[in-house]
């Protein structure tokens, strides 16, 4: 169980980005956090993976617990060893390394070369396309392949939890379907848990078990994925369905007023 207890994140000692965020991501499940640009989703993931400090951010209040142990003071590489690994927004593959070398770097913490080989085969099994492209420099792979590589690279360290930051960004719908399908399979077959941050609410709620909605650095709504899918406000604000007939621009004001409770 990965738990965020009322955490507050401040950048540069002045800029308050997260204002008391509490989240629970149970084992073996896909938990999604939805929200618009700048809501603080990426900051939350970086807080978990320990990558705030190099950016002069700090978890100033609250705690992050992983299986009962506090991890918010740990260094990034210690957190990976504890079984939590982040997949960055925008893929961020090591461009000048080949696909296979990317996987080797991803399995850096593994104790033996045999284990490395074994995990690599597993990644190739889930993403056969990577196997075909293993000797190609990652910078020259297509966007979809890079995203698969980024997910595969994270899996190399045998994580319990994978933090996925907008895996659908900039990819064709078919590729996104494929990747999301693999994520579901990984949850079901390998018992990997995911914390999925997305702007694409429709897709995320399709595969997630539970979800949260974040706005302006705070959680404003939470529930099972099925509940969220049926929630009238989510439908309207995030899924683009108003339930009624087509909406005219006259109603935008009405939208604003109704949304105020969220902030």
């Amino acid at each position: 169980m990965l738990q965020l207890n009322n955490i507050e994140v401040i950048y540069d000692n002045v800029i308050l980005v997260l204002r008391g965020v509490s989240i629970e991501a149970p084992e073996g499940a896909i938990t999604t956090v939805l929200g618009a640009n700048g809501a603080g989703k990426t900051t939350m993931l970086k807080a978990i993976s320990g990558l705030l400090r190099p950016e002069r951010g700090d978890v100033s209040r609250g705690s992050i617990e992983f299986n009962g142990e506090r991890i918010d003071r740990m260094l990034p590489h210690q957190i990976v060893r504890n079984g939590i690994v982040q997949v960055f927004e925008g893929r961020r593959v090591f461009e000048h390394l080949t696909a296979e070398e990317n996987l080797i770097a991803g399995g850096h913490i593994l104790p033996s070369a045999a284990k490395l080989k074994q995990n690599m085969e597993l990644v190739y099994e889930y993403f056969p396309r990577l196997s075909e492209r293993r000797d190609i420099q990652a910078g020259y792979l297509s966007g979809g392949e890079q995203q698969m590589l980024a997910v595969g690279r994270a899996l190399m360290s045998e994580p319990n939890y994978v933090l996925l930051d907008e895996p659908s960004l900039g990819l064709a719908p078919m590729i996104v379907q494929e990747i999301f399908g693999r994520i579901q399979r990984l949850r079901d077959e390998q018992n990997v848990s995911f914390l999925l941050v997305e702007q694409n609410a429709k897709l995320a709620l399709e595969i997630a078990d539970a979800g949260y909605v974040m706005e302006n650095g705070a959680i404003v709504l939470e529930g099972q994925a099925s509940q969220l899918r049926d929630n009238a406000d989510i439908k309207e604000f995030y899924l683009g369905m108003s339930g009624e007939d087509r909406k005219s621009f006259r109603d935008v004001k009405h939208y604003r007023r109704r949304k105020r409770w969220l902030a």
Binding site: S49, G50, L51, P54, P76, H77, V80, R81, V85, Q86, F88, R92, F94, E95, H96, L97, E101, N102, I104, A105, G106, H108, I109, R153, A154, S157
Partner: peptide
């Protein structure tokens, strides 16, 4: 390989447990 990964991106390398 890890060293080359570090050269490519410090931040991502950290996130890989390096």
């Amino acid at each position: 390989v890890a060293m080359r990964a570090v050269a490519d991106s410090h931040q991502v390398s950290m996130a890989m447990g390096i």
